[in-house]
């Protein structure tokens, strides 16, 4: 129990819970299925993005290119499928998008691990490059008449409920994809050598190499995998919006990184958990969606999120400072 209370997840969970209770006590609309489903629905794509950002941060880097990769992959694959009037299994759409994402992710990996360039700068550059290429050479107007399989997929729902006012609410099937990705990442990090290698790399890159991890291989894996996940997330986004817009996801990266950091992932690398990052995301989404239920106008959102980032990281920084002071004691 004591161990649980020392983790940063615990504190984030408390904050989320407190926020839930406050909003719930102020507004009866909060604890309704409709609203909770809304929250979950708006977390489907960001949920995958959070995993992307977290993996990279744990390894000691920072990636801002995943929204660009997602947009690129979803728009290109939609366009391809659209032009060939595709009518096969929907899985192919996801595979195609994921594959494109994978390739783009590997471009990141080449610059980061072979040329040893700083991750932030590389991904800023590739992000600009990807979206620029997409909008110039592939197209800049949205595709609204999606191929049939995508449309069918987008209409399928699970957990259907009919609420008091007689409206049926449900979650898109895509939520299962997100859930799958999250479980996959959790298993990857905990139960594979690759996952532990990611932590090791973020903890001490030189030592990781000395004991036999290959930083190049790990980095190629991370950025390739992140690209793949981003591609899948992009396709989910397309199905949920029922159109493919090449400027849609751009600009969400900083908020996602903020969510990851709020969840206790250290920006210096080596630390971070799936649970923490999801809690961080939940916090951000709740503020975005439900602040208005507290009677706070929506234009306060940014301010609140900014303040949260500062307070969250400030508390963490303060704790680190204090523990260093404690450890320096010598006289017995």
């Amino acid at each position: 129990m004591k161990k649980v209370m020392q983790t940063s997840e615990f504190y984030v969970a408390i904050v989320v819970l407190a926020l839930f209770l406050v909003i719930g006590s102020q507004s009866s609309a909060f604890f309704t299925i409709t609203n909770l489903f809304d929250l979950i629905r708006s977390g489907i794509v960001p949920g995958i993005f959070v995993m992307c950002a977290m993996l990279v941060i744990i390894s000691g880097g920072i990636d801002v290119s995943f929204p660009a990769i997602a947009t690129f992959s979803m728009f290109c694959s939609t366009k391809i499928l659209h032009s060939m009037h595709y009518d096969g299994p929907v899985l192919v759409a996801f595979l195609l998008s994921g594959l494109i994402g994978l390739c783009l992710g590997l471009i990141n990996a080449v610059f980061i691990s072979l040329f040893r360039l700083p991750t932030l700068i590389v991904t800023l550059g590739t992000s600009s490059m990807f979206s620029g290429f997409l909008l110039t050479f592939v197209g800049s107007s949205q595709i609204s008449d999606l191929p049939k399989p995508l449309l069918t997929f987008s209409k399928e729902q699970i957990f259907k409920f009919t609420n008091d006012s007689g409206i049926t609410v449900g979650l898109p099937v895509a939520v299962l994809v997100s859930l799958g990705v999250i479980v996959l990442v959790a298993l990857l990090l905990r139960y594979t050598m690759m996952g532990r290698g990611i932590y090791a790399l973020g903890g001490d890159a030189v030592s990781a190499q000395r004991i036999g991890f290959s930083p190049i291989r790990i980095q190629f894996f991370i950025y390739g995998f992140v690209g793949l996940m981003a591609g899948v997330a992009g396709m989910i986004h397309t199905t949920m919006m029922r159109n493919s817009n090449p400027v849609d996801l751009l600009g969400t990266e900083l908020l996602i990184i903020a969510a990851v950091v709020l969840g206790g992932t250290r920006i210096t690398g080596g630390h971070g958990t799936v649970l923490g990052s999801l809690l961080g995301l939940l916090l951000v989404i709740t503020i975005q969606n439900s602040l208005i239920l507290l009677g706070i106008p929506s234009y306060w959102q940014r301010f609140v999120i900014g303040a949260l980032i500062l307070i969250g990281t400030g508390v963490a920084a303060y704790q680190v400072k204090r523990s260093i002071m404690k450890r320096k004691s010598i006289v017995s």
Binding site: R196, Y199, A200, G202, G203, D204, V206, S207, A208, R210, I211, G270, H271
Partner: peptide, 9 residues
């Protein structure tokens, strides 16, 4: 000398 160990593991 630096033991090559990982503080975060």
């Amino acid at each position: 000398q630096d033991f090559s160990i990982f503080p975060n593991l």
